[in-house]
Design a protein around this nucleic acid. Structure first.
Lengths: 213, 213
DNA sequence: GAGTCAATTACACAATCGGGTAAGGGAGGC
DNA sequence: GCCTCCCTTACCCGATTGTGTAATTGACTC
């Protein structure tokens, strides 16, 4: 049984090319294709689609909002973005909206087909350039952690501060006096090279010195 | 000119298989291979390597630390992890250490070769399962943002606070009096449902109400 | 024109924060 | 034993933060 595909793509020529290309594969059947995704969620239900190929820049609601609606309506359907745009925001937003892949339009037909197969077997598909962007984002969101040499006690005190506790509350929860808390925080501020609590919280969260939850 | 490859892999059979496989390709030359990566950075320099295939679980320093050292010594060399492990931490740490790819050992020889080619042409290589993990992490790190209805003015004030400015500094930079700043922050605290600056900073960063840099 | 809301300032008061300084006890290393 | 480092407490004092109340201006809406 072939996978049922829906295509959303406003460029008529490209849409037809995709139809021909994918329908030619044994593994796929193109159930329908549309020049916009205003009724994307309905169509996915209507055709009981397994896989959606989605352009981003379309009249009406864009492809990113389209993904969101589709995934809301039927989370198990796979959605792969297929677009010319390779800017951080579009990639980023698409993934967060629930896309299972992000392929640039310069992807060759052969690669496109194999990428879609990969998605259907539970994987995720990205053009190498997109993957690079994702890696970059990953790294910068988790920079190599500098060492601040906080003692265990200092770490828990800082954690309590980050969670919004006042000095007094920290003192109670740690079963020490408020003066001790002050002392610890004074040391912490020095080690983090900051001068007040708000700055310390910002640095602790950015550099993931403490973790929330 | 073929790319010079170094292989770090403690399993002798597998190491030899990789040597044979990769050396057989026109595009690659295996310069050397090692059962541990204790001297990885030196070897990379010694052999002027272009590409490193790195196991993770090895005696001595592990592959993740190995990547870090290699990337420190020579950032332009490409490093691809090649391992059995698919747990979040190893994947995550490898990427942050600077890896350009993460392939599971069940990857077929053909896929391995083409993935390495992709890396050498500036891309990034991931097994589909790894890519999925990365996508998952991506999404959960950016949950759908709740609305706090901060006014534009309040937003910039909060940003300044998050960056570590005191009330007085915020007042100067915003060209208003300190009393105005107090008032704005009071309103902000109410809107965020917090009771002090540190809590506000924590919430602002967690919920990405403000962005750093 | 009345009403709402963002932005602004002012003042007073209490609470908290942050620095400096000093000092004792306990754990571990040389 | 001596030294270092962590944890602890205490006191003083100035600066900062946070709350309450009140009032003015301009913009935008009904």
């Amino acid at each position: 049984m072939a996978y049922r595909i829906l295509i959303f793509e406003d460029n008529t020529r490209l849409r037809q090319s995709l139809e021909l290309l994918l329908d030619d594969e044994q593994l796929f059947t193109v159930s329908a294709s549309f020049p916009d995704c205003d009724a994307a969620a309905e169509m996915v239900r209507e055709y009981d689609a397994d896989l959606v190929v989605m352009d981003i820049d379309m009249p009406g609601i864009g492809g990113i909002e389209g993904v969101r609606q589709i995934k809301n309506a039927k989370p198990e359907v796979k959605v792969v973005m297929h677009t010319m745009f390779d800017d951080d925001n579009r990639i980023f937003d698409s993934i967060c909206a629930g896309a299972d892949g992000y392929l640039l339009k310069k992807t060759s037909p052969l690669q496109l087909v194999s990428a879609l197969q990969e998605v259907m077997s539970g994987g995720v598909a990205m053009s190498p350039f997109v993957a690079q962007k994702v890696f970059q984002f990953f790294r910068q969101s988790n920079p190599a952690t500098p060492q601040y040499n906080l003692t265990p006690r200092e770490t828990v005190i800082l954690e309590l501060l980050v969670k919004g506790n006042s000095y007094k509350m920290i003192a109670d929860k740690s079963s020490v006096t408020i003066d001790t808390v002050k002392k610890h925080l004074q040391n912490i501020y020095h080690k983090l090279h900051v001068s007040c609590g708000t700055e310390a919280v910002a640095k602790a969260l950015q550099h993931k010195i403490v973790k929330l939850e």
